[in-house]
Nucleic acid binder design. Structure first.
Length: 535
RNA sequence: GCGCUUGUAGCUCAGUGGAUAGAGCGUCUGGUUGCGGUCCAGAAGGUCGCAGGUCCGAUUCCUGCCAAGCGCACCA
């Protein structure tokens, strides 16, 4: 409906020979205004044309009133136009098929991608529901979406982790060794060392000293990734690929990218290392590609990975859902792509902030190294997956989300996700009971009461909201939308008998109910949340 | 010290260059036990961190300050 109004406004402005300003907003006004929609179009036009807003508003108003879909327009305040639509506009909104999405691109979405040096914790688990929802929304827009979990299984962190596990492994067989500098002191490292000792025996002890860490790296990372995979499955997420960083190095792709960067004069050497030229990106910080010991950094490998995703896998673009502190990474990756001649717009990043856990009013720190974190598994042990998913999605990504564990479990009955699921189940129940009614009776001329109009306005906004999420990755808009939809339905339901004695009225309300249920279901599915028929 | 992100009701959070800044939880009051009472209606509760600036108009944009979280490696 908003799109239709915008179209009318464009036509009107064209007739009045005004440009259509980019920041025109058409939205539902506050309840006390008593209009269906309001727009600031006159204010924006007046600003651009240095005209009197109310005079512009009056001209627009006259033109709009000539439209059969518009029954009343009032000018209010500094120049708002408050629009009341005619019944025909509501009938049309219900009759017209929602425009089917037309994107038809191959897209790859990378998310979670937590370092395989420990369990998934509540902080980086946030990327799971977010990435999954972005993937689903892009699919709904008609794209072919590939999901990838990138495993950083080589490099300094992986080796320090392996050495830490090796220490405990050796200890298990009574062999004392020195704990690595900056090693991982967390309890799960010890458990993993003992697990490997028990399951695989002491074969690593018999290897030459120089090969032990490398051997441990392989098995320890494999086992840790398997654990993460289990957690991810619990979250209801399935990746198409789990890509190893080592593959990029071993296949020579990283070396090829380095060569290409050097060929394009995008690098320089300093202190025996190879760096990405500062003028390749906006920030002043320089970035190492090859360390002075000759090994590549994750950054070079990451560029090689995106080159593979785009060139070899044939993706139009890639979306990467990243944790806090990675805003810089996005700009550097774009610079890296530019350095190898790829359009930097083909790398898209979305950054979220950590979830903080509050327990007894105190915030817990979440570092893997110290082991003072709450794992995603621990949270999933306590609260159902749907509640977990909803909670992760329902706040804006840039929020430093405070997760009160106690509250989340204690008040789970009051959780908004149940409110929405209940609305869906209630409608299913009503529809099942109404089988004897003919839903297809023509309802032309019946009209709509205020609750029905409110419901229809929101139903009509669904595609628009999803398109917004597809463009901006602001996943929290979806739970907000379905919650509001459930509220409007409950409000409608409380004031109108669906199975009315008037069969025409009943048919109209049953159709509205069915459409609401279908929309709630689709919205929940986009979040990877189940819409039960009964609860 | 530098950078990124954030600061809105008791708590957790939406939202916006414009009209009386919203929701959930919590608190209080009422209705509904008649298509599902996991519902509905209402009340109380705000200096939109502080101070400047731009603007007809700023909670929103800009600058400074304060506070919180996270980064600040030839780690990933």
């Amino acid at each position: 409906m908003i799109e239709t109004l915008e179209k009318y406004l464009r036509n009107v402005l064209q007739e009045l020979e005004h440009e259509y300003p980019s920041d025109v907003v058409v939205s539902e006004p506050p309840a006390h205004i008593g209009a269906d929609f309001a727009t600031n179009v006159a204010l924006q036009v007046a600003r651009a044309a240095s005209a009197n807003p109310r005079e512009v508003a009056e001209k627009v108003r006259e033109k709009l009133l000539a439209n059969a879909d518009i029954s009343n327009v009032e000018i209010a305040g500094p120049g708002f136009l408050n629009i009341v639509l005619a019944e025909s506009a509501y009938t049309n909104a219900l009759a017209n098929e929602q425009p089917s999405p037309k994107d038809n691109k191959k897209v790859t979405v990378e998310y979670i991608s937590a370092n395989p040096t420990g369990p998934l914790h509540i902080g980086n688990a946030r990327g799971g529901p977010m990435g999954e929802t972005i993937a689903r929304v892009l699919e709904k827009q008609g794209n072919k979406v590939h999901r990838d979990f990138y495993v950083n299984n080589v490099g300094g962190q992986a080796n320090v982790f392996a050495a830490s596990v090796l220490y405990h492994y050796k200890l298990h067989f009574g062999v004392e060794s020195t704990f690595p500098e900056k090693g991982y002191p967390a309890p799960y490292v010890q458990e993993l060392g003992e697990e490997i000792a028990t399951a695989e025996g002491d074969y690593i002890l018999h290897l030459p000293e120089a090969e032990q860490v490398e051997a441990m790296r392989k098995t320890a990372i494999d086992r840790q990734v398997a654990k993460i995979r289990g957690t991810v499955e619990r979250m209801g997420i399935h990746f198409d690929t789990w890509s190893n960083e080592s593959e990029l190095v071993e296949s020579g792709r990283s070396a090829a990218v380095l060569e290409l960067l050097q060929h394009n004069n995008a690098t320089f050497e300093k202190d025996g290392a190879v760096w990405l030229s500062a003028d390749m990106h906006d920030e002043d910080r320089e970035t190492v590609l090859v360390k002075s010991d000759g090994t590549t950094t994750y950054f070079l490998d990451d560029i090689a990975f995106y080159r593979m995703k785009l060139d070899e896998w044939g993706n139009e673009y890639g979306v990467c859902v990243l944790g806090p502190g990675h805003v810089d990474h996005i700009t550097r990756m774009k610079a890296g792509l530019r350095g190898i001649g790829l359009d930097p717009e083909r790398y898209r990043g979305s950054v979220y902030q950590h979830v903080q856990l509050k327990e007894n009013g105190e915030k817990k720190k979440m570092t893997k190294r110290e082991g003072t974190f709450v794992t995603a598994d621990q949270v999933l042990d306590e609260i159902p997956r749907d509640v977990f998913t909803w909670f992760m999605l329902s706040k804006a990504a840039e929020t430093h989300l405070d997760f009160d564990f106690q509250l989340a479990t204690d008040t789970s009955e009051k959780n908004p996700v149940y409110y929405v699921q209940y609305a869906h189940a209630r409608i299913c129940s009503v529809l099942a009971k109404a089988e004897g009614y003919d839903k297809n009776i023509t309802t032309a001329g019946l009209g709509f009461n205020p609750e029905e109009r409110s419901l229809i306005r929101h139903l009509a906004a669904f595609e628009r909201v999803i398109a917004d999420v597809a463009a901006t990755y602001r996943t929290h808009l979806i739970p907000a939308y379905v919650y509001e939809l459930a509220t409007r339905y409950h409000h409608f339901y409380a004031h109108n008998r669906v199975m009315s004695d008037d069969l025409t009225e009943a048919a109209q309300r049953l159709r509205l109910s069915a459409l609401t249920a279908a929309t709630i279901k689709e919205g929940l599915q986009l979040m990877n949340i189940v819409a039960q028929d009964r609860m």
